[in-house]
Design a binder for these strands. Structure first.
Lengths: 197, 197
DNA sequence: ACATATCCCTAACGATCGCTCTAGAATGTG
DNA sequence: CACATTCTAGAGCGATCGTTAGGGATATGT
């Protein structure tokens, strides 16, 4: 049995708070002191529970992907048709990126846009995750071409890059103050670009 | 006549270098020491010539808009037809955002995505500039509707928001490593969303 | 040549950065 | 109860942040 004084705060609650702070300000601009005041714990407690700032951030990213950002993986996994996947992705992003319950936009997209050279590691990790999403979308399109749902001359890579850019643009617009309706209009316009055949 | 020892560096050259550094790393992540080493001048010289870091940044933004970013204002001013304006905007952005001559993407879009609370002022200024561009585009579309070039049921605001988002997405993709061809494909797809009438 | 004005460099300012040592408080097991 | 263990809280570590005096060097105007 684990002896000693138990931790006075809930680790998951603290992690969720850290997600929000990193989401709002990004990696570099989030100082440890801002984290400790927001989470309501001292710096040594934070370091004991999560390791250093970079480790905490990476765990916060995982937590984000398992919660707020899970709709992307769900759309990719649950929708079999490529077009429905994209429609659902854009529709759910319109709501997720503008919810008043949490910071605007997407943490994966916006948290490491500006980072100092010594934060290049976490920036590379997030870029990797973004690229992974793009590849998954591209594979979905390739399958649709294979199945004849998209014409053979469709460029799966180009189409995936386009919808990835649209999601990134929606995140940026949300952070600039656009509302859910604005983002849904972006989504509607983006669907007009779907290959007609 | 101005007496005393003249400045040993060219102010415009130094400003251009500052543009590049801010473009690459963003506002907060660009330290004054990085600026001084890159520009090859001491900190007191920098402060004497440009004022503090915030003032230098805002002047660098103006310089950016007058040089690398001037293609946006030119497209809006020189093209009378809305569709041609957007086509030219997206085409020139594909090249500008991926040129190997300078950092990727757009300074206005990417330089203040992550900033600490005390940098909120410069972030607000850049958001203002981005919103101004969106409004200019929206006005262009409103004119086209007035002139009958776009059907009366076209939503000028929604369309402008869409193409603004596409530009922001192209900037993000460029910073993630996409090439000129990738961005041109995004532009092509975005033009398929043009209202058919 | 001289006085003057401005420059550049060295050094350092206070504040904050990420991070940790130390001491005391609180819980578990015997 | 004592003891072992692990937590919390305050203070402070060296480094870097943006910024600015101080002083020698270098140019112009007379």
């Amino acid at each position: 049995m684990r002896t000693g004084r138990p931790r006075s705060f809930d680790r998951i609650d603290a992690l969720d708070s850290a997600v929000v702070v990193f989401w709002e300000h990004g990696y570099d601009a989030t100082s440890v002191s801002l984290l400790t005041t927001t989470l309501g714990i001292g710096a040594p407690s934070l370091y004991a529970a999560f390791g250093d700032k970079q480790t905490l951030f990476l765990e916060a990213v995982d937590r984000y992907l398992a919660t707020y950002g899970a709709f992307v993986a769900r759309a990719l996994a649950e929708e079999s048709q490529a077009r429905r996947t994209v429609e659902r992705l854009l529709r759910e992003a319109s709501a997720a990126y503008t919810s008043p319950e949490h910071p605007r936009g997407c943490l994966l997209i916006s948290a490491t846009t500006n980072c100092s050279p010594q934060s290049a590691g976490v920036a590379a990790r997030l870029r990797e995750l973004r690229t992974g999403g793009l590849r998954a979308l591209e594979a979905k399109f390739a399958d649709a071409i294979q199945a004849g749902k998209l014409t053979a001359d469709t460029d799966a890579h180009a189409l995936a890059t386009f919808y990835a850019a649209v999601l990134q643009g929606m995140s940026a617009q949300a952070r600039d103050g656009a509302g859910k309706d604005d983002l849904q209009h972006i989504a509607d316009a983006a669907m007009r670009a779907w290959p007609s055949g």
